[in-house]
Design a protein around this nucleic acid. Structure first.
Lengths: 134, 134
DNA sequence: TGACGATCGATGCAAATGCATCTATATAGA
DNA sequence: TCTATATAGATGCATTTGCATCGATCGTCA
């Protein structure tokens, strides 16, 4: 927990120092960029990013207000909408990755060998989707 | 990052379900309990917990308002104060640990062997206090 | 078809966080 | 000693989060 908090803080600081938006934006833009032109529904973003539903709702409102994403009605579900990344959004993501990627590389990559990284990744992977608490 | 967020969320949920305060309280109460009767200065808590200075300031105000800690003037520095945990604070920490400790054990302990835990701990340890970003 | 519970997404309000700044005391240097 | 600078901690204000709930549509089942 302490290590993750420290790394997160460093990465956020690096973005801030470069005048870029917070990591949360990156997480969403990244998922949307991977999703391509088809876009994603907000509830899919909620699942993939681990942000709470209301958090995604508001984050998307900010992203839309800033022209990073656009909201499209979805044909077969009157409740829903599809979120698609815009050109500006792709550009933002790219610029954030320059800084974020460098942070990861400096904070993590330079401290551990490739074998270490494989080991760490495997161990942490076993902690994903842990069983529900009793 | 994803794993840490998931674990953190699960632990917070477990505390909430038991009607207990958030993890931040535990972090501070834990440090203060370890410090003993001598207590700690707020800036020491800032260093140890990785909370921002203003965050500690307000967290301590809440803890004091709730009787979990007490603020004492400190002899040799008129600016400062010493924070000491109260009996109630120790009791809160104890009750939180029952739930928090069980979460750790279920979410982490049950997934990894002792050797795995040693390995993980060593790898993460090498990521602590990373070099400043360029 | 009509009623009912479930799901999608938004939002009012309270609490917490982040940022900048402030007050007060301490320390160092002329 | 007097002044300048640094450090400890608090706080006003804007933004974000958390919680509960709402409105709207969907799916199911009588």
């Amino acid at each position: 927990m302490r290590v993750s908090r420290q790394l997160l803080e460093r990465a956020e600081d690096a973005l801030k120092d470069s005048g870029l938006p917070p990591l949360a934006w990156y997480d969403v833009l990244h998922e949307l960029a991977e999703a391509g032109e088809g876009g994603l529904r907000p509830f899919q973003l909620t699942e993939r990013t681990l942000f709470a539903q209301y958090n995604i709702s508001r984050l998307l409102a900010r992203l839309e207000a800033d022209g990073q994403v656009e909201k499209l009605p979805v044909a077969d579900d009157g409740r829903g909408q599809t979120i698609r990344i815009t050109g500006k959004g792709r550009e933002t993501r790219r610029r954030m990755w320059v800084v974020y990627g460098r942070s990861i590389s400096e904070l993590v990559g330079s401290q551990l060998s490739n074998d270490d990284l494989d080991t760490l990744s495997a161990l942490l992977g076993r902690l994903r989707d842990p069983p529900a608490l009793a």
